[in-house]
Amino acid sequence: MSLPGRCARLAAMLRAAHIGTRRPRFAHRATLRRSLRLLGSFKFEQTDPAVFYGGLAVDTSQLVRDFYSDLTGRALRGTTVLDVGGGPGYFAEEFAREGARYIPVEPDPSEMHAAGLSVPGAVRGSGMALPFRNDAVDICISSNVAEHVPQPWVMADEMMRVTRPGGLMILSYTVWCGPFGGHETGPWHYLGGEYAARRYLRRTGKEPKNRFGKSLFSVSAADGLKWARAVPEDVEILAIFPRYHPRWAWWLVRVPALRELLVSNLVVVATKRAPATGQNAATSQRSAVELPATPESA
C-alpha cells in the first residue's frame, strides 16, 4: 500500500479507536477514577511492587478480556495468554481467574524470581526472539516492557508472529517524554537519560534499577504509530489509546507534540487475519484499508 494510503488507514483507525460504533468495550472502564487509582499506585512500583502490579494485573485482565470479547464474542476461558516480559508473574492469578492458561516470558532469571512467585510453564527467553512457533497463542500481551528493550518493534513483530490468526495482540508501553518516562530517575530524564541516571546515583548512592541505555530506552508515541502504520496487510490495528487516561482524553493520541508529553503510556491493539482467497480475500482487503470513521463526538 502507498504511504498516503497507509496514513489514511491510520487516521481512520485513530478516529475509530475511540468514538462511534466501533468504540471498544474497554472505553467504558476508562473513567477518571480508574486513572487516578492507577497513577496513584505508581509510587509503589519499587517500594511495594505487589501494590502497583497487583492493581495493574486486574486492569490488564479486564483490558484483555474486553478486547478479546469485542474481537471474538468469547470469554478468555480456554485461551492461551503469552505475557512478554512477564517478570515474576504478577498477572498469573488474574488470568487464572478468567480460566486462561497464562505463560510469562522473561529473559532475566532474577526478575522471574524477584517476588517469590512460582508460575507453572514460565519461560526464559527474549521478547525480540520469542521461543515459540508461528501462530502459537490466542493472545499475546506486553505491559510496560517495550521501553526496556533495545529493539521494541522487533519485539512487536515477534508478538504478532506468535499470535494465531483471529487472535489478539496488545502492546502497552511507557512513553519516554511523558511524566513516567524516566521511571525512578524522573523527572530529570527531561534533561537526558544519562544525566538522570547519574543524578539518581549521586542522590541515593546506588544505581537505578532502570539504567538508561542498558535497561531503559527512549521510545516515543510516534514510534508506536509508525509501527502501526507499517504493519503487513494481514494485520489489523484495532485501537490505539493512552492507557491511563479517561476516555474523554483519548484524543491526545492524535496531536503530535502533545501526545509525547501527556500520553504517559500508549496501548496498541492488533489482530491477525486468517488467510483468505478469492472473493473473501477482496472483502478482507477492503476492511483492512477502509476502517470506518464516524463524526467526532464530545
Rank of each mutant, 00 (worst) to 15 (best):
M1C: 10
C7P: 00
R9K: 13
L14S: 09
R15T: 05
R22K: 02
F26S: 02
F26G: 00
H28W: 11
G40Y: 04
T47Y: 00
D48A: 14
A50H: 12
A50T: 06
Y53W: 10
A57N: 04
V58L: 06
R65V: 01
Y68A: 03
S69E: 13
S69P: 00
A75I: 00
R77L: 04
T80I: 03
V81F: 00
E93L: 09
Y102D: 01
A114E: 09
L117P: 03
L117Y: 09
S118C: 04
A122R: 01
V123M: 00
D135L: 06
D135Y: 06
C140N: 13
S142A: 13
N144G: 05
W153L: 07
E158I: 11
V162I: 02
T163I: 08
P165G: 06
G167C: 10
M169R: 07
W176M: 12
W176K: 04
G178W: 12
T185D: 05
H189N: 08
G192S: 05
R198I: 04
R199E: 08
Y200W: 13
T204Y: 15
K214H: 15
L216K: 03
F217W: 09
V219L: 11
S220G: 02
S220T: 15
S220N: 13
A222W: 07
D223K: 11
L225T: 11
K226Y: 12
K226V: 14
A228R: 09
R243P: 10
R247Q: 15
W250G: 12
A257C: 10
L261W: 15
V263Q: 03
L266A: 09
L266N: 04
R273S: 13
A276H: 12
N280M: 11
S284T: 11
S287W: 14
A288F: 05
E296S: 15
